[in-house]
């Protein structure tokens, strides 16, 4: 009972935190309080929020291992989906305002600019992950689901590369993300390499327990 309540409050906190930047941006957009270049602010904030949420989602499993508190896994799916939500908004804003809804401009941008290529690749990698986030998909894909969802790391790495390549001089924040991601990845590497998945003795896989929890 206590545990259920703890998970519920964590989830409420997650929803509030994850929706807050979006609420701020939408209200700011309509009240005109996003500054002189609102589109730039929308772009930076949606991209940053997506990257933060994606990074936090990748920290869920390490936290679960370190604390031994399994219910935390139930935060992973909403974190991933919110990350995808903000990445989608980021993509749409870029397409609508920077490429003025012109597919030719968009294609040129993707082909010619490596930071756009990396960002686009990160987004594309996230699409099947979001699409297979349902319990049904988890059951259907079985072991392949876990393999597929390692793509979250790929998306994270591509996202950080995208960030590195787009800044002009100040690489402090990209480095912060790169270091966090490196630590998370280092934590998972033994697990990703071994066939058994290197998990602590648990009767259910991450995916199954996540599915049941929801």
């Amino acid at each position: 009972m206590n545990q259920k309540r703890a998970v519920l409050s964590l989830k409420v906190a997650l929803w509030v935190c994850a929706l807050a930047p979006g609420a701020y941006l939408v209200s700011g957009f309509f009240t005109g309080s996003l500054g002189v270049n609102p589109v730039e602010k929308l772009t930076l904030w949606t991209g940053m929020t997506a990257l933060i949420l994606l990074t936090v989602s990748l920290a869920v499993t390490p936290v679960r291992r370190l604390t031994g508190w399994n219910p935390v896994i139930r935060l992973r799916r909403p974190l991933g989906l919110f990350a995808f939500f903000y990445a989608s908004a980021h993509f749409v804003i870029w397409f609508a305002f920077y490429n003025v809804l012109d597919f030719g401009y968009m294609w040129d941008d993707i082909m010619e600019r490596r930071f756009v290529t990396a960002g686009m690749a990160a987004f594309i990698v996230m699409v099947p992950l979001a699409a297979t986030s349902t319990q049904w998909a988890i059951r259907k894909l079985k072991k392949r689901w876990g393999i597929l969802h390692r793509g979250a790391y790929v998306a994270g790495i591509l996202g950080v590369v995208h960030y590195f390549w787009l800044v002009k001089a100040d690489t402090r924040l990209p480095w912060v993300f790169a270091l966090i991601l490196a630590v998370l990845l280092a934590f998972r590497l033994p697990a990703l390499r071994s066939k058994r998945g290197g998990r602590p003795r648990a009767s259910k896989s991450d995916a199954e327990s996540a599915a049941q929890a929801n």
């Binding site: 270049n37 589109v39 920077y98 003025v100």
Partner: peptide, 19 residues
């Protein structure tokens, strides 16, 4: 072009679109 973006168009602030 700047190696990382086109210089063909710009956003005339406070406008929204780079057109």
């Amino acid at each position: 072009s700047h190696p990382r973006w086109s210089q063909a168009r710009e956003t005339r602030l406070p406008g929204f679109r780079k057109d």
